[in-house]
């Protein structure tokens, strides 16, 4: 990076360190912090959206929707989350390819699963055949985002559900006495007021989310942990 780095052997210590800390691997390491922050910036609103949907499903009086919401929240909390982080990207990837396969190649006569292979026609490959490395990275990254949003959506759903129930019921009754429909009462009374109850839980989940980001590494994304391993991994062993 610096011009004096051309011959590090004659450099004084501080310059040598400057060269070392700006080597290509180190720069990639610094860049990877932005990858993690990008993930946080994308996942937070996604998880909030999933959580809102989940909480609405939990509140729903329509039995199948309610059951769906309860199943979603309890399943994700009852199973180690790492299972979902590994399951969702691969399952979703195969699902997308399968759907594309059905659409693009209706006259394909062989089964998709042959033994241990998952074979779809050329047009159904995701990311498309010949896609650039950059596109592949973006695809893998968005899969990771979906996995994170699904898992954290369940946590958020639970928090928001509790927050919605914490809004004093008398206020909802008052709103209904004024002639609002249930939806109106929810929108105008419950929704604005629930945030104050949800905020402690949400900040908790936010911390958890930050702590869960190292799992990105497992999904094959070159994040902070990946580069830290590259830099700090034991090159020798006693």
């Amino acid at each position: 990076m610096f011009e004096f780095c051309a011959d590090p052997s004659i450099l004084p210590d501080w310059q040598w360190f400057a060269c070392y800390l700006t080597s290509g691997t180190h720069l990639a390491f610094y860049r990877s912090f932005f990858v993690v922050m990008l993930l946080l910036a994308i996942v937070a609103p996604l998880a909030l959206g999933m959580g809102l949907l989940g909480a609405l499903a939990l509140r729903s009086s329509f039995a199948p929707v309610n059951l769906l919401g309860r199943g979603y929240v309890n399943l994700i909390r009852g199973v180690p989350d790492i299972v979902f982080f590994l399951f969702v990207p691969i399952a979703l990837g195969q699902g997308i390819e399968w759907v594309l396969h059905q659409i693009n190649c209706p006259d394909w006569d062989q089964p998709v699963r042959q033994g241990n292979d998952f074979i779809v026609c050329r047009e159904a490959k995701m990311p498309p055949v010949g896609a650039s490395a950059w596109a592949r990275n973006v695809y893998a990254f968005s899969m990771a985002c979906v996995a994170f949003a699904l898992v954290f959506g369940a946590f958020v759903a639970n928090t928001l559900y509790g927050a919605m129930r914490a809004v004093p019921h008398a206020q909802v009754e008052t709103a209904e006495a004024y002639g609002m429909t249930r939806a109106q009462a929810f929108r105008r009374v419950v929704l604005p007021q629930m945030w104050i109850f949800a905020l402690p839980g949400l900040s908790n989940i936010w911390q958890i989310l930050i702590k869960a980001t190292p799992l990105l590494f497992l999904l094959g994304i070159q994040d902070v942990v990946f580069w830290a391993r590259e830099l700090g991994g034991a090159k020798t062993s006693l």
Partner: peptide, 22 residues
């Protein structure tokens, strides 16, 4: 994970492990 790597089919091994953990 070993089975998913081998069979490339996440729909058996992962649900199994999920059921065990539940």
């Amino acid at each position: 994970r070993y089975f998913v790597d081998q069979t490339f089919n996440p729909f058996i091994a992962y649900p199994l492990v999920a059921a065990y953990f539940i």
